[in-house]
Design a protein around this nucleic acid. Structure first.
Length: 160
DNA sequence: GCCAACGTTGGC
DNA sequence: GCCAACGTTGGC
């Protein structure tokens, strides 16, 4: 199992939105490095849900990857701001995943706290100037985060 | 609101 | 294929 971090501006889509939707397709990513990470995701992988562009930025919750290698439907929609005229259903350029709500944290970890806990090598989101919206979280970093957030193994395992 | 960081575009 | 110009992200 692999761990990831997904950034979202809560004005656009928050952990509360995911909680009420239960699942969502993670559309709108238009950065190749981020897309390549989306392509690597596998079912039952865990994602830390990060709220960006708020004071302070926080890890707000947890999500599970439940479907992979999906063509992002917004690339085919001329009315979407994520429309890509070079993409066709036969040859899509942007793949993504569907995620499922697991948990919203009461005690959120803020970016200053994350900077105190981790080096940029351990957790890329603490690196100054990092604009990537999808990034891997090394397994040992993920374990430390889950421990800090008091997440039990049962909570992140499917078929509880 | 500012601006550093950095990805993308396009002229050459 | 280089790189200046430009646009966007996102912390501060």
């Amino acid at each position: 199992m692999n761990y990831w971090l997904l950034k979202s501006e809560p004005n656009e889509y928050s952990i509360d939105d995911l909680k009420s939707d239960e699942t969502v397709i993670w559309d709108g990513v238009r950065n190749y490095q981020a897309r390549n990470f989306l392509r690597e995701m596998q079912c039952s992988d865990i994602a830390f849900f990060y709220h960006s562009n708020v004071k302070p930025p926080v890890i707000a919750g947890l999500a599970r990857i439940i479907a992979t290698n999906l063509a992002d439907p917004t690339q085919f929609d001329p009315n979407s701001k994520y429309y890509d005229p070079k993409a066709t259903p036969e040859q899509p350029r942007w793949q993504t995943v569907r995620v499922e709500f697991i948990e919203k944290f009461n005690q959120k970890l803020s970016l200053p706290q994350l900077k105190a806990m981790f080096t940029p090598e351990e957790l890329a989101v603490v690196k100054k100037g990092n604009r990537l919206s999808v990034m891997p979280v090394p397994s040992d970093t993920a374990q430390r985060l889950l421990n800090e957030l008091s997440v039990s193994k049962e909570q992140i395992t499917e078929n509880q």
